[in-house]
Amino acid sequence: MLRFTLERFAGMVVTMLLVSVMVFLIMEIPPGDYADRYAFRKYSGTGVNVTEADIEAIRRDLGLDQPMLLRYFDWIGGIVLRGDFGQAFAFETSVAKVIGDKVWLTAGILFATLLLTYLVSIPVGIYAAVRRGSAVDYGLTVFSYLGLALPNFLLALVMLYFANRWFGADIGGLFSDQYRDAPWSLAKAWDMAKHLWLSAVVLAWSAVAYQIQTVRATMSDELNKLSVTAARARGVPELKLLVKYPARLAINPVVSTIGFDVNRIFSELPIVAVVLGLTELGELLLKAYLDLDMNVAGAILLLLTFAIVFMNFLSDLLLGWLDPRIKLGV
């Protein structure tokens, strides 16, 4: 198991390294560089005339005149060694400050969504497989198709509309007005929980639709396995039998796609955040892109992707633990 873990860990580090290269390249794509945009932003409309030399000075100050390779190492080095993501120009402060505790808000949303996804999709998928061909199964299939076809922002709007009608106006966002800028407290956390469920439902929707089908398919396969018939022939009570044999194995594909679900959720986050007025990384990412604040955007993209890679790693470990065949390499 130790060897298995170390192998996966090394794989994770390599992937993260490559991801950071890719993110860096994306940060470099927009025309002009940080100095251009900084000067433009700071001085446009102020009447001050910015010369090419001024911009050049800023560039030199920040080391932007260095070759790309050096700048990459500078950037990634800062992140890894000092947790320094560089400067955010739109907010005139460091990227780390801008991102700040939004990381935890985002993590909160992510975990609420994942929890909801699995709490719903696993039992429902199992049920659909056991009752294969019934009206319920048919209805769930239709739901799954719809769940994957409905654009998430539309779902967010519809949910928001109904939430507003049934639960009052103050349901969007992550906090009520009085807590938005308050320091963290139990009351604030509770307030957040009360707002969180809507985002979680919207974000979990398509993941649930997808995972129900996965669980249903594996469960149907597993139900037909000889080992299940053999256990039944030994007189194992039906419910215990379902849980211990097929259901236990039907969870494996879900575990192996945790990273994929996180990916899907992060992919939807910036869009859903616009509609729901969430103040977390997704929304900040969109804002940064629109402002071409590439240091902030790059930092967020990197964080989100690292989170996905890390979840992949965790899911590999979990799978190795759940399925003894994997870690033995059978």
Binding site: K225, S227, A230, A231, R234, G235, K244, R248, L249, R325
Partner: peptide, 25 residues
């Protein structure tokens, strides 16, 4: 009663020894 019959009274062995066991226990 059926559960007692299954296994306790009548036992069954199948053709595929590998597939008759669950791989995860």
């Amino acid at each position: 009663e059926l559960r007692r019959i299954r296994g306790g009274e009548i036992g069954m062995i199948f053709q595929e020894p590998m597939a008759s066991f669950s791989p995860v226990y």
